[in-house]
Write a protein that binds this DNA or RNA. Structure first.
Lengths: 242, 242
DNA sequence: GACAGTTGTTGACGCGGCGTCAATAATTGG
DNA sequence: CCAATTATTGACGCCGCGTCAACAACTGTC
């Protein structure tokens, strides 16, 4: 019994060892450079042993993506309770997105890889379910803030727009901008000098467009974001480098 | 001289033959399924001949992406002159984005593939330049509308926000939403019933937030988009299926 | 503490895809 | 008609994924 559980623990922890070895390779050298043979060599285990843990390479990426999505959700939750007032809470979540995409770029990158259908399709139904639940819970956090805003009379949703559809707009805006920043070789060359500030401004304007109260000046919004950014990152600081 | 030019023409047209054979495979079966051997077999040429045209597989994808970007730009240009008034012209371009992403999904998909650094990095400097110019020209079309709006006094840009940075917001919003629609397995499950309409509404609201005149009701905006969509597609109709 | 049964580990192997290159064929100019 | 140039070919080397039969370690039993 003692030995069995020791062995089992050994196996358990090997799983996370695989993941923590795979992540830096995946992020710094890309999906192509992550080879099972290389991983096995570095682990000092045979390749077959890796396949006891993950049925294929894609599953490793999916597992990493789940870790990343989990982290994003934690940052959302932390951000959403750092300040008072629905509009500022929403702003804080927007800030969390920025922090996540820039300070935890390796996690953001792994999330994106999963959006390649090749990887998604080859990953197990079990992990697909988990990933969808992660997404759902992220959405839930933000939609919760929106519902609070409505309940407090600080925001009135247009007819035919659900809270989730409302969130979808902000999601698209920040998400799209981060993808573009990460993959568009040279935004400055097309005239976008400060993309992050621009998107913050657009988000702020969109909130104005919806009449989200109490209204805040953009300068104040920026100040709040500057102040919150380190707090959002804090608890993750040890597991999130670069 | 006759024969030489016939031969040369033959070679020229083989290039587009390769591309038009590669595109459907790439789109319907994914990047992994596009193999050089398979392509060669279907072309009824030897593999080596393919490599006379494209130094590697990635370059084929890059070449396809250029075709797609070119088409997007044409649609933007066509959309931007279909209506009068800067706000409606901007709306028309937004509509062009929707049409492009939904009706020319295969082109949109190829564009996205290029955003995988693996493919981007392996493509030649020459093609990278062309791609950046395509992006620049797309941006140019939209920024032109914005500048017209400013000149006509229908829009006033906030200080510290360039026309391009202004465009970047709408770009992120529509682009982000289309990526999410294409890759997020089940938006309806997280509560987003009608993503396209939602984003149109968000874009409309953002324009309101910036005080873009003359203001238009959302219903009218939708009506204009419905009317324009087929016209934007028209000239491409033969080269864009599904 | 020997033994049968179970569970975990190994790495050589098959397969398929990319890109190369020496041999071969076609084309050109003289 | 004959070099010289240019285009075409497909077998080959290499690498990476995933498998599986052989082997090792561990477990519970008598």
């Amino acid at each position: 019994m003692q030995l069995l559980s020791r062995k089992q623990r050994e196996i358990q922890q090997r799983e996370s060892q695989i993941l923590s070895l795979a992540r830096p390779i995946l992020v710094s050298e890309g999906y192509q450079s992550l080879s099972m043979d290389r991983l096995a060599t570095q682990m000092e285990y045979a390749k077959g042993t890796l396949y006891n843990h993950f049925p294929n390479k894609e599953e490793i990426v999916a597992a990493l993506a789940i870790e990343s999505l989990e982290m994003r959700r934690e940052m959302f939750e932390r951000a959403s309770v750092l300040v008072q007032g629905s509009r500022l809470r929403m702003t804080a979540i927007g800030c969390a997105c920025d922090v996540y995409a820039s300070q935890c770029a390796e996690h953001f990158a792994v999330e994106q890889m999963l959006r390649n259908m090749v990887i998604w399709e080859k990953s197990s139904a079990k992990r697909q379910k988990i990933i969808q639940q992660c997404e759902l819970r992220c959405m839930g956090v933000v939609a919760g803030v929106v519902r609070d805003a409505i309940a407090a009379g600080e925001l009135k949703l247009p007819a035919k727009l659900s809270a989730e559809e409302f969130v979808f707009g902000f999601w698209s805006l920040t998400f799209g901008s981060h993808i573009l920043m990460a993959t568009s070789p040279s935004l400055p060359d097309v005239g976008v000098q400060d993309p992050v500030r621009s998107i913050r401004f657009h988000g702020w304007t969109m909130m104005n467009g919806y009449g989200w109260n109490p209204s805040v000046s953009f300068e104040e919004t920026e100040a709040v974001m500057e102040e919150l950014a380190p707090k959002i990152l804090q608890a993750e600081s040890e597991e999130c480098e670069l």
